[in-house]
Amino acid sequence: MQTPHPDLPLAAAPTPRPPARSHFRCFHRLRVRWAEVDMQKIVFNAHYLMYIDTAMSEYWRALALPYEASMLTLGGEMYVKKATVEYHASARLDDALDVGLRCVRVGRSSCVFEAGVFSGDQLLVSGELVYVFADPATQTSRPVPPALRVIFEGFEAGADMVEVRTGDWNTLGRDAGRLRTAVFVREQGIPAEVEADALDASARHAVAYNRLGMPVATGRLLQEAPGVGRIGRMAVDRSVRGSQWGRQLLDALVAAAQARGDKEVQLHAQRAAEGFYRRAGFAVVGEPWEEAGISHIAMARRL
């Protein structure tokens, strides 16, 4: 893309100091693959830009921003204007690398990101990406939206990127239902008449909203028996899955169960998510079974 950017001249600047691992809040871990190395099993230079670009996707997840939907809401797109890398040491086959990324400056229409590729604490490669916010139809620059500017600045300052709200179906049902339909019906193929039930009307619902007000995760809490809660319908937007948003939502539902005096919470977990619930303190109860073509397991946690 070729557009004028008066706020960010590309003239030569003093060489910045190499970043340290402690400078980054967001990391993406990867392992060097055979296809990425030369005959000496050293990573080809160009692959480091691919590593950094992959970490950029992780950065958007850390912001709780589904990229495509967020850009549509913000009325623009992010285009790379300039990418530079500096090589300090080599990565080799099977190395575990941590790629750090942070936003260091937001101009009128551009954003500057710093990257660091680390093996342990050793910096192997540093880089800089200059992105321009632009109209996707004309590819001409636009001012960075104030909401996006605040999100970048807030994240780098350590602020929370989501807010979990709890309430009844009348309050949260529209957003919860939209997420559940996307995950359970469209993604997993569960019939809509199975996903929706009459229990929504009496359940306590939780929805996690990002800083653009978009719902990114949901779940509900039922009263299974006196003193026993049951958590269900846990769903996280696919594009931000793998960050901590599902755990924050689960913790909010557990807290809601504790607040009403429950002594135990139960749930029916999809087997693919069993590890997630184990890490949150849930233990398996009984044997697995199949529901709607998906293997499930009962789990419980004492409060």
Rank of each mutant, 00 (worst) to 15 (best):
L199F: 12
T15H: 11
F113H: 07
L123G: 06
I294C: 04
P136K: 08
G177K: 13
R260C: 09
A225K: 08
L63N: 00
R260F: 02
I42V: 15
G177Q: 13
E156D: 04
R230S: 05
F184M: 08
L250T: 03
T166C: 08
F282C: 01
R279H: 14
Y59E: 02
G158Q: 07
M299E: 03
L212Y: 01
P16N: 08
D53K: 10
H88P: 02
H268E: 06
R238S: 12
A11Q: 12
F282R: 02
V132F: 10
A198P: 01
M71T: 05
G177E: 14
T3H: 06
S239I: 00
M71N: 06
E128L: 11
L101S: 08
S90H: 13
V162I: 10
L250W: 01
Y277N: 03
S141K: 01
A12I: 09
C103M: 14
V150Q: 14
V265N: 01
Y131H: 15
V32N: 11
L65I: 00
S57G: 15
I52S: 12
A62L: 05
M78A: 15
E58C: 08
C111G: 03
P19D: 07
P18C: 04
L49Y: 09
G75D: 08
R279D: 12
E193A: 05
G177T: 11
Q139T: 02
L74W: 09
V185T: 12
V228W: 05
F44T: 05
T3F: 08
L249S: 01
P145C: 06
I52E: 14
V265K: 04
S57R: 14
A147R: 15
P18E: 05
L101I: 15
L30S: 11
A46W: 10
